[in-house]
Amino acid sequence: MNVWVYVQGSKGAPTSASLELLTKARSLGDVTAFVGGDGAALAEAVGQHGAAKLYATGDLGGRLPGPAVSAAMQAVIEGGDSPDLIMFPQSYEARDVLSRLSVKLGKTVLTNNVDVAAAGGAVTVTTPIFGGNTLVSTTFTGDGPFLAGFRPKSFAAEPSGGGAAEVVAAAVPEVGPTGAAMVVATHVEETSGPKLDEAAVVVSGGRGLGEQAKYELIETLAKLLRGAPGASRAIVDAGWVPYSYQVGQTGKVVKPGVYIAAGISGATQHMVGMKGSKNIIAINKDKEAPIFGIADLGIVGDVHKVLPKLIEALQSR
């Protein structure tokens, strides 16, 4: 089986989600990578994770990747190198490319997958629904290339020991008006401490905190545990913290050693983003809250009482 992996670069290296998919793709067949941008800097890491070849569009000159990169992929496919399956990490960039390519090729897309299997040319993906309590397996029908998006952290990234991938230019054809959106400035939101999706400990706050000022408790506790602060969608929507703090379906997927949910009831939207944590501690006033259904330790109580005492106990150690 010929498998392509959409690789996204960030600060000169492939993102961890890209390396996870390359690792999984190795178990399915021959792996080729595709990047929207310069390939040279990524070739070594991509090759180490199992891809022999890396198609690269070169610098996009400020164009948003969706229309440009999907057109470059279509050109390679129609030029004769057609994969059976293309795996995309579910990032903002890759999702646009995946969607545009689906229309260009007239192929269905399946997203939010956490696993994939191939048997005799058939490709089946697995998607959790209802907050992760049910797993749906879906098989692509018709001819490939089959297009699938995967949630971050669905697989563990492991190098295979391969050498640098051969970089092959994949030029962007003229895309007309669809390619007219241009990035004019890029802003990086600096955060101190470990990154939310890489931290060993994540402490998240929700609506139960009552007011924005109380989010300080979450930040203090996260710092004491050398972890990262996170948030439910409810308080992100309310404007208490930036979107980059959001854990859940539309935010970050985290799988830390310890996840502490404070004042979070456990909406489906949130649980799919943290259910894979090794240990889950929940603090909530409502003993019927769904979060207690997946907690290893649940404290039925007021976060305004429990958190200050916990912080004090940790500070005095």
């Binding site: 797993l135 879906t138 889950i280 907690a295 290893d296 330790l297 649940g298």
Partner: peptide, 26 residues
């Protein structure tokens, strides 16, 4: 271009310890 081939229950997490805060929950 897709067909649902299986629907299964996800493996459940083992039940945890849930306690009422009596002031010593921390």
């Amino acid at each position: 271009g897709q067909q649902i081939s299986d629907v299964a229950k996800a493996p459940e997490r083992a039940a945890g310890e849930i306690v009422e805060d009596d002031g010593e929950g921390f």
